[in-house]
Design a protein around this nucleic acid. Structure first.
Lengths: 210, 210
DNA sequence: ACTCTTCTGTGATAAATGTTACTGTAGGTT
DNA sequence: AACCTACAGTAACATTTATCACAGAAGAGT
């Protein structure tokens, strides 16, 4: 166990790994589980050791706008940011591939920041990369039209799962882009005509999407 | 001088203030100055002591999408995040009201994080509040239509300047919302008919905008 | 085979936003 | 006054996206 954590988080010092083992709780969650809801109080910092999580921003009308993916070796930036104050979560986290996560009590955050250089660097890097990712999301919705956003969405999905098949219904995609199912169907059809994808039921094969 | 820094950053310890005085450089910039461009390397962490700065995300086509304001007592989160690695800036910063800023060499960041509790807390709080602000921006463009976004824009402007007059042309507003001048004119006219604003040349008076 | 449900495709239409083109107006300059 | 320029208003039209309505196809269960 100790060994595997070290492999997933190669930059952590061995002392830090030991401390995590000591203070953290490893928990498993099945696909579909909502790990965190908007407005809930955050009690733990979450390190992902296995599986996949999607982070959404929820609209008042029930929209679920996809922000980004969390994968093994990563951590939830939101759960780190809301440290001492035990702030409310601004996002919703959903398991999309059975996960194992290491739950770390929030009070450890501050302590380790001072005691473990590799933790400090990990936290800063997490902030930085998530901030950049959110800025890229802003780019997409501010500057691009739906067809470009859809292409970007598919590319991101295939990057995240490491495969070229997207096993989602048009409705699910529409929800995560905050548009309607019909729009997604139409745009996908156009992409198929351009030879970018092949459409099957509940599956989209990416062809030339680099 | 030492005194005024302490007033603007009330949570900083007196030792930290002294260290800042010692290592930082106070600089002044006039309205209109571009403090930082997308793609430039960041060499300093910036603390604002006077004036106002707007942070933009630049589109490939030359769009300037407004993200948020920076005011006295605040710091540029981006310039903090891109610490050790001296990363490229992902944003553009423009002075909109003559500013004084304290430039702090990036290498101080890490050092002070360990040595000054009040610096550490300030940095974490800066990350947190900016992250939240950007999430709110995502909300706006993902879930809201242009008329709502325009209202939000005007409200934010009046909050930032503490007055109820917006001294901007329709074109400037359109640029910052990444839409066209005509659309802004139309929507403003509708708002005027609803009694929300009064339109003058180069000025919009907010009436009932709470 | 039949039924049911979910998913997909598509036309028709509406609404929001973007674009083009033109007009008038306020203010500054000569 | 005459002129110039930036700003603002607005009509007409194009494009994009959203909504409504409906039909057919695929798969699951009986």
């Amino acid at each position: 166990m100790q060994n595997s954590l070290q492999i997933i988080f190669p930059n952590f010092s061995s002392e830090l790994i030991a401390t995590i083992e000591e203070n953290g709780t490893l928990q498993n969650f099945e696909t579909g589980t909502i790990l965190m809801r908007t407005g809930q109080y955050i009690k733990n910092t979450v390190l992902i050791t296995k599986g996949k999580i999607k982070i959404y921003r929820e609209g008042e009308d029930g929209g679920e706008f996809l922000m980004y993916y969390l994968q093994p070796g990563q951590a939830c930036a939101i759960s780190m940011i809301c440290t001492a104050k035990s702030e409310k979560s601004q996002i919703m986290a959903k398991v999309v591939e059975d996960v194992s996560v290491m739950m770390i009590p929030l009070q450890m955050m501050d302590k380790w920041m001072m005691e473990h250089r590799s933790w400090y660097e990990f936290v800063i890097e997490t902030y930085r990369s998530r901030f950049e990712e959110v800025l890229e999301v802003v780019d997409n919705i501010a500057f691009r039209s739906m067809d470009e956003r859809l292409e970007f969405y598919l590319k991101r999905h295939s990057d995240a799962c490491g495969c070229s098949e997207v096993n989602l219904s048009h409705q699910e995609i529409a929800t995560e882009l905050n548009t309607s199912r019909e729009v997604v169907s139409r745009l996908l059809k156009k992409m198929e005509q351009r030879g970018l994808v092949k459409l099957n039921r509940n599956q989209i094969e990416l062809l030339n999407v680099k």
